[in-house]
């Protein structure tokens, strides 16, 4: 597998360490958060494990040390692209409603 690191370009996957699906942003803690809060449960434990298009965190540990979100298809192994993790959630929040949560 090759991963198009936004910083380094196309690099072999051996340079990266996978972390798992990027399905929800980390919840922001206010004053009275409780661990039973469903948003925390979802953030930590709920994974759709969809067969098909996925967004996954990868760490370019043997490269530029960037965390990237790789967009790929687990059925065809096609890699569509990658976004810097630092930009991923901001971009996702800007997208119109109907494109999220599919």
């Amino acid at each position: 597998m090759l991963i198009p690191c936004p910083h380094c370009g196309l690099r072999p996957s051996e340079e990266f360490t996978p972390k798992g699906l990027a399905e929800a942003p980390r919840p922001v803690i206010g004053g009275a958060d409780l661990p039973e809060d469903a948003t925390w449960q979802d953030y930590l434990h709920t994974r759709t494990n969809r067969a098909g298009d996925t967004d996954e965190y990868f760490h370019h540990a043997l490269g530029c040390r960037s965390w990237v979100v790789v967009h790929r298809n687990t059925l065809t192994h096609e890699v569509y692209g990658a976004t810097m993790a630092s930009e991923f959630w901001a971009q996702k929040n800007q997208q119109p409603e109907q494109e999220t949560g599919q």
């Binding site: 360490t17 972390k19 990027a22 942003p25 980390r26 965190y57 760490h59 540990a61 040390r65 960037s66 965390w67 810097m84 993790a85 630092s86 930009e87 991923f88 959630w89 901001a90």
Partner: peptide, 13 residues
């Protein structure tokens, strides 16, 4: 180190 990078980049950019 990887944890710090993850938190900085994914949660608190």
């Amino acid at each position: 180190m990887a944890h710090m990078e993850f938190m900085h980049q994914s949660a608190w950019p």
